[in-house]
């Protein structure tokens, strides 16, 4: 996350005789550090507490909205919730997310290439337009998109919903892709061009492999965004057989009411797992470049 040197090394570098008020050994600094650790511990606890219910209820045989350590912890909720319809909903989620993530890569990579490689005058207005589009609230576009889907008879169509989700994520994806592409030196492609390779081949064989971390980031980003999306499928997919997990859980919550908080919690955990695992993996491999490229540039 940070590349700052650790306190220990910094202390070693500092001349020992310097009468610094923030010397690491001064009682004032030490008490400040203790206070900082205390506050951090409290913050961590506060952030952790809301999770408590989720985990305890998921292993409880008679879960309520209250948080209590179950007398007889059980995994029955998980096995019970992983049946027919719910499993189907998770598969629908996978189809939507994988579909839009792959489609995003296929469309964004070629679109980003000329924006990264050719003149500023050519790409700048397009980039500004894309950046502007990333700021628009997708929530608002859903009203007209619903109208469009009704008119074109596209309601309950998973492919059409995938296309819409892809379209809304593309401006950000192209922008990220272009930034990662800028880091790949052009000299390598020039060598390929001299050897007679087309721009497309150069992109596929040289640029994309060199920016694999960036490609992974864009993929993960789109996948997680689609996986977590509730509002879009909630409006555009009405048939329960077509609905992804997010909508299925919501319906579950409404239909089963108070009787099944344990199932709700278990389903929520199962549904969250893929994005949490994916995020953790990508984070492990790429370090915080992942979060930061999304954050700072976004």
């Amino acid at each position: 996350m940070t590349t700052t040197s650790s306190p220990a090394t910094r202390q070693a570098v500092r001349p020992p005789a310097r009468p610094s008020r923030i010397s690491a050994t001064s009682p004032r600094r030490r008490s400040a550090a203790v206070a900082a650790y205390l506050v951090l511990a409290l913050v961590a606890l506060a952030f952790l507490l809301p999770f408590g219910w989720l985990f305890l209820a998921s292993v409880s045989d008679k879960a309520t909205l209250g948080t209590a350590i179950p007398d007889h912890p059980t995994l029955r909720n998980f096995s019970e919730v992983l049946t027919g319809d719910n499993l189907h909903a998770l598969i629908n989620s996978l189809v939507l997310s994988l579909g839009s993530a792959l489609l995003t890569l296929v469309l964004a990579a070629p679109a980003a290439y000329p924006l990264s490689r050719y003149s500023r005058r050519f790409g700048r207005p397009i980039l500004l337009g894309l950046l502007f589009a990333t700021g628009l609230p997708i929530t608002a576009i859903l009203v007209p998109v619903y109208g469009l889907f009704v008119q074109l008879d596209l309601l309950d169509s998973i492919p059409a919903t995938t296309l819409f989700l892809t379209a809304t994520g593309l401006p950000m994806a192209i922008w990220l892709m272009k930034n990662f592409m800028d880091e790949v030196p052009i000299s390598l492609e020039e060598a390929a061009w001299v050897d007679g390779a087309s721009a497309f081949r150069a992109l596929l064989r040289i640029v994309l492999p060199l920016m694999l971390p960036g490609v992974t980031v864009v993929f993960t980003f789109t996948f997680a965004l689609t996986w977590g999306n509730f509002f879009v499928p909630f409006i555009l997919l009405v048939d329960p057989a077509k609905q992804p997990a997010s909508v299925a859980i919501y319906q579950y919550f409404g239909l089963h009411g108070t009787a099944s908080y344990g199932l709700l919690a278990a389903f929520s955990i199962l549904y969250s797992m893929p994005v949490v695992v994916l995020y953790t993996l990508v984070q492990r491999v790429l370090g915080n470049a992942f979060a930061l490229s999304g954050a700072v540039k976004g």
């Binding site: 989720l54 509730f230 919501y250 549904y271 949490v276 979060a291």
Partner: peptide
């Protein structure tokens, strides 16, 4: 970051339970 990675829907459930009458 865990709170951030959780799907928005699950965050909603979690807070609904956390703030409910019998909640944490």
């Amino acid at each position: 970051v865990g709170a951030w990675v959780m799907p928005e829907l699950v965050a909603g459930f979690v807070w609904y339970a956390f703030l409910s009458d019998d909640g944490t």
